[in-house]
Design a protein around this nucleic acid. Structure first.
Lengths: 195, 195
DNA sequence: GCTTATTACGAATGGGCGTTCATTTATTGA
DNA sequence: TCAATAAATGAACGCCCATTCGTAATAAGC
């Protein structure tokens, strides 16, 4: 009994590898685990990816490219530093909640990447951080924000917002919008803006 | 050629396992890697720890117990919610910077723990979170802090402060105290306090 | 100094790892 | 319709895994 369409299989491999890597970590997941989840033999994966490492690189780079494009899209046309900060915060948190596995492995499995892939990911991550940093720098220049150091604040805020996936559950006490509002308020206040 | 003192060997195993787990992740590190770093044969580790899993449990529980004791000690006798918030923030950040490997594996390798050990760690972590949460709740009750939801804010602030280890380097542009001040200001402002 | 408990070595266990490959089967394009 | 291509099987490769164990060497207690 054989499978048929290559494109479907490749995407299924991606989906399952992502899920497994996010749950157990890259090195704890074997090609046999992935093949098992997909429903094929381990060797068949090599028809679609040259190696296990290439699956990880594919997942991380795809994620970073998508994330950047979505962020730029979300910020496009938003005027005013306060509005731009809120737009970025809402976008970032929503994206974390929509794609927790992507976000998690992009953060966690950097150390599992070999040198080549890692550099590419770093470049994209810096590009992403720069979006927020520029908003903060602009706000400081205008006097809208009160921030000691924009670069430090950028990393502090990203860590804060990214951490949401660790504990948030869709069926928890607070729903998604309520939690996002909490975070947005915290972000705004942290740069010295009172509601 | 044999080693001699058991107690030293056990501690050396702990140190090296911690460092290796933090760098590469629990499942990417083999008993051979650890033995190699210690300078003994793999089998000799089993004179000190019954299994690889037990090394991880030992490291994580020791860390959590130490962290809690140090936190309670740092907060002891500090009066006033604002002061207590600052004390906690300074303690937490300093501890991250002093013991980045401990902190990192306690956060990252929860998923590598089998059920028994994981529950024990969760209990300790909740206990730790409660210290900050109670400060925030007290501040809200008094009207000192402006926070939408103390539990959410607790996790947001912990994530923010814990994230410092990802990027901070002792030989970077800002020194430790300057960075801590940035974070403390961000923490204070995030709960609605202007300097 | 001798006995006993520790602690190390070093070889071996069975099993899982990433990857390769000859082969078979299904799909595609002329 | 039929050759060519794509994608699967299933067995095998050598290597590394966590762990075990018989044995030897060291340290501790009398």
């Amino acid at each position: 009994m054989l499978q048929q369409r290559s494109k479907d299989t490749k995407e299924t491999i991606r989906l399952n590898a992502l899920r497994l890597f996010a749950k157990s970590g890259y090195s704890a997941v074997s090609m046999r685990d992935i093949a098992n989840a997909v429903g094929i033999q381990p060797g068949a994966i090599y028809n679609h990816f040259p190696s296990k490492q290439d699956i990880l690189v594919d997942l991380m780079m795809t994620h970073m490219v998508d994330l950047l494009a979505a962020a730029n899209n979300a910020m496009d046309g938003v005027e005013g530093t306060r509005n731009r900060l809120v737009a970025f915060a809402r976008f970032h948190i929503s994206y974390q909640l929509d794609f927790p596995d992507h976000v998690f492995i992009a953060y966690m499995e950097l150390r599992s990447l070999e040198e080549t892939g890692r550099q590419d990911v770093y470049v994209k991550r810096d590009e992403y951080e720069a979006i927020l940093r520029e908003v903060l720098e602009q706000g400081v220049k205008e006097g809208t924000f009160k921030v000691a150091n924009a670069a430090v604040q950028t990393r502090a805020l990203l860590a804060m917002m990214t951490g949401i996936t660790v504990w948030f559950r869709e069926d928890g006490e607070l729903n998604r919008d309520q939690v996002i509002d909490c975070y947005v308020q915290a972000v705004l206040q942290s740069v010295g803006i009172q509601e």
